[in-house]
């Protein structure tokens, strides 16, 4: 082997290592904090290790359990709500002629062009008049809103990519339009729709601003809990909460992975 041929894998290895450090470095720090009982400035590693803070976080009255359930309920409801709207909307949009579709989709993105803080403040004001502030429904709505925009976009793309000939073949052989949608169109669009669902779910799990304005203080989700802990200088609690935050995300991905065979997942990219 020539030196240059040796150098390429070496350089690649170093680059990958660097990327891994940038990505996983903060995570490692997080993991350290989660099990540190004492960690003061000049020390590179915590001086006392233990599960003390875990016990504190999971004390019945500390709020970790209820925040976790809230987070899950809100995220699943936001997924259900936005997908229930995105599937029919995406299908209808995908079947529109192109110019009309583009105009509507751009219009749809418009709210995303504004900074979201004033939008959430205004939503909070409106929800307050409707008596939705401090309720789970209010939080679900405020989570479904940004998710819906992306879900409709992704669903539209998924339906637009579905082969019309496959639907026509089903109609031709005797399937009603509804039957065709369920048996042929939906399975075609499924990878895209699942991608949209994952997106809305993950977005909801670590949504902070909207929850803060609409839900707090009655409704606490994990990000809010973490925020409170960090503001109080309690890095251990913040670290533990963020590790807990990983649970729903990883769990959801596992579920998706179960449902989707590898070949279906790989079609998302196509």
């Amino acid at each position: 082997m020539t030196p240059s041929r040796l150098l390429t894998p070496l350089g690649l290895g170093l680059l990958l290592g660097l990327i891994a450090f940038i990505v996983f470095g903060p995570l490692l720090n997080l993991a350290l904090w989660a099990f540190a009982e004492q960690w003061f400035y000049p020390h590179t590693l915590p001086t006392v290790w233990g599960f003390d803070f875990w016990a504190r976080v999971f004390r019945p009255r500390a709020g970790a359990w209820s925040s976790l359930t809230n987070t899950l309920i809100v995220a699943l409801s936001a997924v259900a709500l936005s997908m229930a709207l995105a599937v029919p909307a995406g299908y209808a949009l995908a079947r529109l002629p192109l110019p009309g579709r583009h105009a509507i989709m751009l219009l749809f993105l418009l709210p995303q062009a504004f900074p979201n803080l004033p939008i959430f403040v205004n939503i909070a004001a409106i929800f307050h008049q409707l008596g939705l502030t401090g309720t789970l429904i209010g939080v679900v709505l405020v989570h479904a809103l940004p998710g819906l925009v992306y879900a409709v976009w992704i669903a539209t793309a998924a339906f637009a990519a579905a082969d019309r000939n496959l639907e026509e073949a089903a109609r031709n052989l005797g399937a009603t339009p509804l039957r065709t949608f369920v048996d042929v169109t939906l399975p075609q669009a499924l990878p895209g729709l699942l991608a949209a669902a994952i997106f809305v779910f993950l977005d909801s799990v670590d949504e902070f601003t909207g929850t803060f304005f609409v839900g707090a203080p009655e409704i606490t989700t994990l990000p809010l809990l973490m925020f409170n802990a960090s503001m109080g200088g309690n890095y251990q609690v913040a670290a533990i909460t963020s590790l807990i935050l990983l649970i729903p995300s990883i769990g959801f991905m596992l579920v998706i992975e179960r449902f989707l065979k590898a070949d279906v997942l790989s079609r998302i990219g196509r």
């Binding site: 082969d163 000939n165 073949a169 031709n172």
Partner: peptide, 18 residues
């Protein structure tokens, strides 16, 4: 509508459901 016509069509792309 197509589903009531009872014709059977073979598409150029075959249109088999993947």
């Amino acid at each position: 509508p197509p589903e009531k016509r009872h014709t059977a069509m073979v598409f150029q792309s075959y249109a088999l459901w993947p």
